[in-house]
Simulated scan of single mutants.
Amino acid sequence: MDFSEWLMIGGLLLIFLLAGYAAWLWYQVWRRRQQRMQQTHERNQRLAGDIRLLARGLCEGQVPPIEGAIRIKVLLDNYDGPRRANLNLAIFETIYDATAHIPTHESWKALPAAQRRQHEEYMETLEQQHRDALHRAAQELRSGLI
């Protein structure tokens, strides 16, 4: 064999090695994509279960309406799975937006009592205004998003 034949064999060997490496890399990408899809599916199942649980708690009076609405809205924002087209969930957005200015956690504890009472009265008014719509939306979610 002369030099050009060795060069051609070496070139073909290099092509096969690079093709094998490219196939291995593509397999890694496919496997990671499958894992990500599985993780997303599992996350959506957990979120859907949490949403149903909160909705049931709202319907049964186990969760304060404002807190439940805010929690459900945040979970719905993170949920990107399938849902029924006829779900009317605007009330959760309405409650969330109406209470966005109210401090939480440590900021709430730091408020003077008079200011806390003002916010509590405002939340009670919101609850009374939206009680029926909130209950209807929670009833819809109680059976699931699909």
Rank of each mutant, 00 (worst) to 15 (best):
R71F: 03
Q28D: 11
N44M: 08
T104D: 07
T104V: 14
H41M: 12
G68Y: 01
R31G: 03
S4V: 05
L145E: 04
T99S: 12
K109N: 14
V63D: 09
L18G: 03
Q128G: 10
I70L: 02
L12D: 01
I70A: 01
I15Y: 02
H101C: 06
R52T: 11
L25R: 12
P64G: 08
I72Y: 01
I70D: 02
L13I: 06
G68R: 00
A55H: 04
L145I: 01
Q128I: 03
Y122H: 15
K109A: 14
L7G: 08
L76K: 01
E124L: 15
Q35C: 04
P112W: 01
L14P: 11
M1Y: 07
Q45L: 15
R84Q: 12
H135W: 10
P65L: 04
L12T: 08
Y79A: 09
Q34Y: 03
E93F: 02
A100C: 12
Y122V: 14
Y21M: 10
G144P: 04
Q139D: 09
E60P: 09
I146E: 07
H41Q: 14
E120R: 14
I91R: 05
R131V: 05
P112L: 04
R33M: 02
E120S: 14
N78D: 12
L134D: 05
A98D: 05
E121K: 11
F16T: 08
I9P: 01
A48E: 15
N88D: 06
N86P: 01
A69V: 00
E60G: 02
N78P: 00
A138W: 00
H101R: 11
Q129P: 04
D97M: 11
I102A: 03
I70S: 00
L13M: 08
R116A: 07
A19P: 11
A19W: 08
R36Y: 02
R52N: 04
T94F: 00
L126S: 12
A23C: 02
P65D: 06
G81S: 06
L58C: 05
I9W: 10
Q28H: 10
E42K: 11
I95A: 03
G49F: 11
N44Q: 14
F16E: 03
A90C: 06
T125M: 07
W26V: 04
E121H: 11
G49L: 14
N78L: 10
L47M: 10
R136D: 05
